[in-house]
Design a protein around this nucleic acid. Structure first.
Lengths: 193, 193
DNA sequence: ATCTTTATACCGTCCAGACGGTACAGTCCA
DNA sequence: TGGACTGTACCGTCTGGACGGTATAAAGAT
């Protein structure tokens, strides 16, 4: 659809590079730093070129949300087919260093930053909610108790928030240990009352 | 210290009202909506009046961070003296509707929004990290295993993130049930291997 | 085979408005 | 009298966005 055109510079098509740059700036600088000029510069595209692909800032946001939805769908597939199980995949990809291979983590974190009270912010919130709903549904396939499934998701969310604030993962507890402990907790009460 | 000045309009002193307005705008509109003009208007103070108390936006941020630290200290006291226990207090005040009586939740959420890559954003991240460290320390007084304590904190963080995105708390599971389930999980393995 | 048209993929410049901040004269209350 | 403001008038900078121009390649038409 768009892939037929040749790559001019850098990685993929200019359009993808713009989206990549937008994500990076959103994550590293926040919404204030993700101006059209800054995005264009980071994507090694002129401002006019950026505006050619996304004719307004709102449409740039739209492009990010489309990517989020697309990656969420692709990630859900990987999650269900993961050898270690759904829970393991979910938690693993929620931790810094174990990001989703389709880049969902990056896109999710970037979208989080524009989930404010504006009109496009509302759309962002909606898109994030959809991703969360998909994740919960996948978790439920492995954990029958809906409350426990939700709990596991909240742990993942907490990990996300920590990544957002850039906190160096408190206390220096290895993240693998967290997964093991949670597993142990879950196993110790498999049949509940 | 600051409380000696009389209330002119609305709630407390003008200074406090400015901080309240700044928090509200940050939470409801994000950093983009929290301009000096908007904050002044929401606090029912003139722009000149706002700048009388906080002579720059940076100092307004500083005021918010001071308030965060102050409220964190006051909240930690309440947490330790809570009848239902530290864990219950922590989780309860992480949920929408059960906010900390000293307003920590509000201030924390507002600060989260300015925790970006700028200079003042770094300060915000530092202040948030300090609050988190205090919370974890308090949790550890009730939960001996550091990994489990961390896990509980992550659940609370997840709740925060959900509040941030404004998600209506997925699935409609009552939040009390979450606390009960977590309690059950914790009790089922009190002596670990 | 050549000419013209159309579409795609950009670049560089300019502008109106918003934002942070300044300056300052005047007002109200203790 | 002085501290806590209000209100108005500004200024410089940055931002989103409009606009016009350019290079290239494929598609038709002749």
């Amino acid at each position: 659809m768009t892939e037929r055109t040749a790559r001019t510079r850098g990685g993929g098509s200019a359009r993808d590079r713009v989206l990549d740059a937008y994500e990076t700036l959103l994550i590293e600088q926040g919404p204030g730093g993700a101006t059209l000029d800054a995005v264009a510069a980071a994507a090694e595209v002129s401002k006019g070129g950026l505006l050619y692909h996304f004719n307004s800032k709102e449409s740039l946001v739209g492009g990010l949300l489309d990517r989020l939805r697309e990656r969420s769908a692709r990630d859900a597939e990987l999650m269900r087919s993961d050898a270690a199980g759904t829970v393991a995949y979910y938690l693993r990809t929620s931790m810094p260093g174990g990001e989703s291979p389709v880049g969902l983590t990056r896109t999710y974190l970037a979208t989080l930053r524009i989930a404010d009270g504006t009109t496009s912010g509302e759309s962002a919130r909606g898109a994030l909610a959809a991703v969360d709903a998909d994740g919960l549904a996948a978790l439920r396939e492995e954990i029958e108790d809906p409350v426990v499934a939700w709990l596991v998701q909240l742990v993942g969310d907490g990990l996300y928030l920590r990544t957002l604030t850039g906190a160096p993962l408190t206390g220096g507890v290895p993240t693998d240990e967290l997964l093991d402990t949670l597993r142990g907790l879950l196993a110790a009460r498999s049949g509940k009352g």
